[in-house]
Simulated scan of single mutants.
Amino acid sequence: MTATAESTAVPDLAELQQRAAHRAAERAGGRDRLRGHIVCDGLVRIFKTDGVEVVALQGLDLVIDRGELVAIVGASGSGKSTLLNILSGLDTPTAGIARVADYDLLALSNRRRLSYRRGVVGFVWQQTGRNLLPYLTARENVELPMRLAGRSGGRRARRARAQELLEMVGVGYCADRRPGQLSGGEQQRCAVAVAVANDPEVLFADEPTGELDEATGAEVFAALRTINAELGVTVVVVTHDQAVATQVRRTVAIRDGRTSSEVRRTARVAADGSTELVSEEYAVLDRSGRMQLPASFVDALSLRDRVRLDLEPDHVQVRPGDVGAGTERSDA
């Protein structure tokens, strides 16, 4: 597909990605475990309400490498929040494979699921009020998960760790304030610190900038990028915010309960020696050879019902099904 260049602060993005990969390798203990940190294969989730079945996920496939920062996008009802709830241990899939950091999410006992949610994954909600306890200060909120997990080192060590994390996300000055004394953006950055207090392997964020203005949302996303780069934590963000989606090296789109396409962004050196960010969009091919064409492509060519396929030496041509034999062909 056609690659387009974007005017973005590419060196920063490339450097952060490199640092995140390095930290992730350190967390893996030198073992070759950088691939497949999160794996979904044929993932299905069916909800039953009053005798009516709703299929939220219809055989979704997804692989996220250790240390990646990935944005997942999709329209309301596409299944992205259902996916996030399953991966974070808040929901149980109906069928398929869902594995995070070697945990089989379909086979977890209640005790092991609690351990998984407490120590392996962190979570940031869209609603700022759900992430922090209102009667605790920011530092105390960050310390709480460590206390509940029984982390060794004592109160002084927990306090120092909490302060370090608050500084890392840019709100160290809020340590002694309660949530009611913080802005929405400060609350969300504190929530990021809370989510990584127990040094999880994966951080999930469900629309973390959804209730914030653009400038404040950028600060929250910068905190997520910092955590990804400095700690090597794999970060998965569900978002409608296109400004967020374009700031990651990989954006995965979900449509009708399946992964439909990916946008990958790579840094390339231009002819004048400057660095530019090039975006390429890919359709996701499942094990049966099925794929979803991007909606914009379907609309542009008015594709309906069926399409004509032609196998060429190095590509496949897709054309409207009603194109006559003598009509000039063009790639879709």
Rank of each mutant, 00 (worst) to 15 (best):
residue 44 V to L: 12
residue 44 V to I: 14
residue 44 V to S: 11
residue 44 V to C: 12
residue 44 V to H: 13
residue 45 R to Y: 09
residue 45 R to P: 13
residue 45 R to W: 08
residue 46 I to T: 15
residue 46 I to R: 14
residue 46 I to K: 14
residue 46 I to G: 14
residue 47 F to K: 01
residue 48 K to I: 10
residue 48 K to Y: 10
residue 48 K to P: 07
residue 48 K to D: 13
residue 48 K to Q: 09
residue 49 T to A: 13
residue 49 T to P: 10
residue 49 T to W: 07
residue 49 T to M: 12
residue 50 D to K: 02
residue 50 D to C: 03
residue 50 D to W: 01
residue 50 D to L: 05
residue 50 D to G: 03
residue 51 G to R: 07
residue 51 G to A: 07
residue 52 V to W: 14
residue 52 V to D: 15
residue 52 V to C: 11
residue 52 V to F: 14
residue 52 V to T: 15
residue 52 V to H: 15
residue 52 V to K: 14
residue 53 E to T: 12
residue 54 V to F: 11
residue 54 V to Q: 14
residue 54 V to P: 15
residue 55 V to S: 08
residue 55 V to A: 10
residue 55 V to P: 06
residue 55 V to M: 07
residue 55 V to F: 13
residue 55 V to K: 02
residue 55 V to G: 07
residue 56 A to R: 00
residue 57 L to P: 12
residue 57 L to W: 11
residue 57 L to C: 11
residue 57 L to D: 12
residue 57 L to I: 13
residue 58 Q to D: 11
residue 58 Q to Y: 06
residue 58 Q to T: 10
residue 58 Q to G: 06
residue 58 Q to V: 08
residue 58 Q to R: 08
residue 58 Q to P: 05
residue 58 Q to M: 05
residue 59 G to V: 12
residue 59 G to S: 08
residue 59 G to K: 00
residue 59 G to D: 07
residue 59 G to Y: 07
residue 60 L to V: 01
residue 60 L to T: 03
residue 60 L to P: 03
residue 60 L to F: 01
residue 60 L to S: 01
residue 60 L to N: 01
residue 61 D to A: 02
residue 61 D to F: 06
residue 61 D to Y: 07
residue 62 L to C: 04
residue 62 L to S: 02
residue 62 L to Q: 02
residue 62 L to W: 02
residue 63 V to Y: 03
residue 63 V to K: 01
residue 63 V to S: 03
residue 63 V to Q: 03
residue 64 I to M: 05
residue 64 I to H: 01
residue 64 I to T: 07
residue 64 I to V: 13
residue 65 D to M: 06
residue 65 D to F: 09
residue 65 D to P: 08
residue 66 R to T: 13
residue 66 R to D: 08
residue 66 R to C: 05
residue 66 R to Y: 06
residue 66 R to N: 09
residue 67 G to Q: 00
residue 67 G to Y: 00
residue 67 G to C: 00
residue 68 E to R: 03
residue 68 E to C: 05
residue 68 E to W: 08
residue 68 E to P: 08
residue 68 E to D: 04
residue 68 E to K: 02
residue 69 L to W: 00
residue 69 L to I: 04
residue 69 L to F: 04
residue 69 L to K: 00
residue 69 L to R: 00
residue 70 V to E: 07
residue 70 V to N: 09
residue 70 V to L: 10
residue 71 A to F: 11
residue 71 A to Q: 11
residue 71 A to W: 10
residue 72 I to H: 12
residue 72 I to L: 09
residue 72 I to Y: 11
residue 72 I to C: 08
residue 72 I to S: 09
residue 72 I to E: 09
residue 72 I to M: 06
residue 72 I to N: 12
residue 72 I to R: 12
residue 73 V to E: 05
residue 73 V to Q: 02
residue 73 V to P: 01
residue 73 V to H: 01
residue 73 V to T: 07
residue 73 V to I: 07
residue 73 V to L: 01
residue 74 G to P: 15
residue 75 A to T: 13
residue 75 A to Q: 11
residue 75 A to H: 12
residue 75 A to G: 10
residue 75 A to M: 12
residue 75 A to V: 14
residue 76 S to H: 05
residue 76 S to I: 05
